[in-house]
């Protein structure tokens, strides 16, 4: 089992390395969206400090959503997905591997860049730390839940827009607890409650979503 996850991971990472452009595009999208907010609401440092956590989180949501197309679409188009389903390994195993790879490629870079954006919004040191931790717990959930939407919309007209309609409402709890954690750190109320809620969502999503994705892929491949 672990061996298969390992093979899937290696394969996905090699593919991502050969398509570095795609990874960077998502990352720049994240930075650009976050940078638009001060231009939209004005440079008042107090206001920006208040908004910072939420803005970074909303941008992360949008960036994660943008990268969902990469998850299954090319495998679906070139027949790899059929071959994966035909392996003797239970689908949840390689699905977990693919989602993990997706997070490593499109979630982790966001986490690495987020503190820089946080500084631009004037977040305190502690808040920056909480921002990173909340993203660390939250972005895997974005990849997990997003995978359901990506699997359901394979090969559909306007799949990209449709994914956002399906997935964004489901992202809301992650947004609330993620941004709330940063807020809690800024206001001195503490972020533990938010972070532990995010953690429980992560565990729940990790257990349940691969099964839903497996069912969704079966439906889409028919």
């Amino acid at each position: 089992m672990l061996q298969i996850v390992n093979v899937v991971l290696r394969r996905e990472l090699i593919l991502a390395m050969r398509r570095r452009g795609d990874v960077l595009t998502v990352l720049f999208f994240f930075v650009i969206v976050a940078s638009l907010f001060p231009l939209g609401v004005g440079p008042d440092p107090k206001l920006l400090r208040l908004m910072g956590g939420g803005v970074v989180w909303v941008s992360a949501l949008l960036a994660a959503m943008l990268s969902l197309g990469r998850l299954f679409a090319s495998d679906y188009a070139d027949g790899t997905l059929e071959q994966l389903i035909l392996t003797p390994t239970p689908p949840v195993v390689w699905i977990t591997g693919k989602i993990l790879a997706h997070w490593l490629v499109s979630g982790v870079p966001l986490i690495l860049v987020a503190p820089i954006l946080g500084v631009q919004f004037g977040l305190s040191g502690e808040a920056l730390l909480v921002l990173v931790v909340s993203l660390l717990l939250g972005t895997p959930v974005l990849s997990l839940i997003g995978a359901i939407g990506a699997a359901l919309t394979l090969g559909l007209r306007g799949g990209g827009v449709l994914v956002s309609l399906l997935v964004l409402p489901l992202y809301i709890p992650v947004l609330i607890f993620g941004a709330g954690a940063v807020d809690g750190a800024m206001s001195g109320l503490g972020a533990e409650a938010h972070l532990s809620l995010l953690g429980s969502i992560l565990i729940l999503a990790f257990i349940l979503t691969p099964w839903a994705v497996s069912a969704a892929l079966r439906i889409s491949i028919e």
Binding site: T153, R157, L162, L165, L166, L168, P169
Partner: peptide
């Protein structure tokens, strides 16, 4: 939004 997503998916 959830209702809309359901209907949009079926329509697509």
């Amino acid at each position: 939004f959830l209702y809309l997503g359901f209907m949009a998916l079926q329509a697509a």
